[in-house]
């Protein structure tokens, strides 16, 4: 464990708490893509299935339980409790165009042709693109509540910090993980526009609005 990875994981945790806070405080999931949240639940389930037969540490196990549990809870909040505030009209990204290529890629680019490794690779590829429905929805709305932008910032910063962690681990331990690295680079890259607007608007006290 190094400072980049710990900070990254804490940012990831923070992003989920911010999202829960947004939904509970405003009693609404307006502006949040249900499709992205559904994909994250799928990412966590397929990656952390090893929870039952692969022990890393107590930290690792507790985080896995938290991520699976909270993602399912968010899906429940959006689909059941606050369903009326969910806006499927703006949530139009075709997730099959994401799921199918990720499944294919996982079958050909993995560390071992076993169910567990294929699911792991699938989860890493899917995580890289899981934010796309959310960014697509943001684009269609043209604006976002400030708390939603804090959620997206924390979520984007998490994978960005993992990039620093990987550089550090390569240097310190000779650690190499090409699948996670390339997917992580793509994932962080998707946030570039968002980060720019977050930095130039939200951090200066303005509303998050996309240029016309």
């Amino acid at each position: 464990m190094n400072i980049f990875r710990l900070t990254a994981d804490l940012m990831h945790l923070a992003s989920i708490f911010i999202l829960l806070l947004k939904i509970q405080k405003t009693r609404s999931c307006a502006g949040i893509s249900f499709k992205s949240q559904l994909l994250y639940a799928l990412v966590f389930i397929t990656r952390y299935i090893d929870l039952f037969f692969y022990w890393v540490s107590l930290y690792n196990t507790l985080m896995k339980i938290f991520f699976i549990g909270s993602s399912l809870y968010i899906v429940y909040l959006m689909q059941v409790k606050f369903r009326a505030t969910n806006d499927p009209v703006l949530d139009t990204f075709r997730i099959e165009y994401l799921l199918a290529p990720c499944a294919l890629l996982a079958l050909v680019a993995n560390y071992a042709f076993t169910a567990q490794e294929i699911l792991w690779a699938f989860s890493v590829y899917l995580e890289a693109g899981a934010i796309l429905p959310q960014l697509f929805m943001l684009q269609r709305r043209g604006e976002a509540e400030t708390i939603t932008t804090h959620y997206l910032f924390a979520l984007g910063a998490y994978r960005g910090l993992y990039l620093l962690n990987w550089i550090y681990r390569y240097w310190a331990e000779g650690y190499v993980d090409w699948i996670a690295w390339i997917a992580g680079l793509v994932q962080t890259g998707l946030y570039t526009d968002f980060f720019y607007i977050y930095y130039t608007k939200v951090l200066k006290g303005q509303k998050f609005e996309l240029p016309a």
Binding site: F67, A112, E117
Partner: peptide, 10 residues
């Protein structure tokens, strides 16, 4: 095994 040991991250 070695392959699995690579997945110590979240």
């Amino acid at each position: 095994d070695d392959t699995r040991a690579a997945h110590d991250e979240l």
